[in-house]
């Protein structure tokens, strides 16, 4: 220490003057910490206030959903033998759920499989609304309507970093549009390609089996308009429900069951080439 003080004493006056002007480290650090804390806390407080106000009526939850869900587990059947590829479901879904009709995004769509000796061709122009006639051949040609499988073990829910998507007690995966930050993880995670970024709201969107309709005792819009009864919707907990009866008695299969997602859309007459 002595040496150091000596050094200061022996140095020229200019250096001494400069040292006097230097802010001591302790003073600098305490001031910096205070300013940093104030800088972080002040906007955080206002941010929290804004966030809380955006979740309007947060404390006023009236309906008890556990009571609504009691004894309900929704299930869906797609009968590929009946489907004629008219895409009334695609059209109805877009109108029911405000999905922009002019954009290539769909909550439900219809795929056409055409098997030839060269292999399988799959097309779904504009979600199935604009199928071209193509040549009639002797090989297998059929339609497969697709929609969210409302998996019992949903990968999309697992990957959401902000808990903006979840499975309800009656077995429907919903999106919380107010919490979704639009990171697209869920869109990547879904093995069925059932999710998309909504062009208007800019949050993840998907089929909800028309949750607003089934909550009011109606069937999903696509089931309502299907002219051939290729789509069926029912309660799997009710053993007398026609859908439950079909699942119990007929040969049904889910899509990509090997992925462990436990899809809740059951297909009748599904060919093995369908992916």
């Amino acid at each position: 220490m002595k040496e150091e003080t000596l050094k200061v004493k022996t140095s020229n006056k200019a250096v001494e003057e400069h040292m006097k002007k230097v802010v001591p480290r302790r003073v600098f650090l305490t001031t910096a910490c205070k300013m940093l804390a104030a800088g972080i806390l002040a906007p955080m407080g206002s941010l929290a206030a804004i966030l809380n106000s955006s979740f309007a009526g947060e404390s006023g939850e009236t309906s008890d959903w556990t009571r609504v869900w009691a004894g309900k587990e929704w299930g869906f059947i797609v009968d590929t033998e009946k489907c004629i590829g008219c895409a009334r479901c695609v059209d109805a879904c877009k109108q029911e759920n405000q999905v922009p009709p002019d954009k290539e995004v769909f909550r439900t769509w219809v795929e056409r499989y055409v098997e030839t000796t060269q292999g399988v061709s799959i097309d779904s122009p504009n979600g199935g609304l604009d199928f071209e006639p193509l040549a009639e051949t002797e090989e297998k040609q059929f339609f497969v309507p697709k929609l969210c499988n409302q998996c019992e073990n949903p990968p999309c829910v697992q990957v959401c970093p902000v808990s903006a998507t979840y499975r309800t007690g009656d077995g429907v995966i919903l999106v919380d549009g107010k919490r979704c930050v639009g990171c697209r993880y869920c869109i990547q995670a879904c093995p069925y390609g059932a999710r998309f970024m909504h062009p208007k709201t800019h949050v993840a969107d998907k089929c909800t089996w028309c949750y607003h309709r089934i909550a009011k005792g109606m069937r999903p819009a696509c089931v309502t308009v299907c002219p051939v009864g290729a789509r069926k919707f029912g309660n799997l907990r009710d053993l007398k429900d026609p859908v439950t009866q079909i699942i119990r008695k007929e040969r049904v299969r889910g899509l990509k069951t090997d992925m462990g997602t436990k899809p809740q859309v059951f297909y009748l007459g599904l060919d093995e080439v369908v992916v």
């Binding site: 979840y166 919380d176 919490r179």
Partner: peptide, 12 residues
Amino acid sequence: YGRYRGNSISEN
């Protein structure tokens, strides 16, 4: 009801 915003159900 779980690890999500409960009021979102009613909103949907």
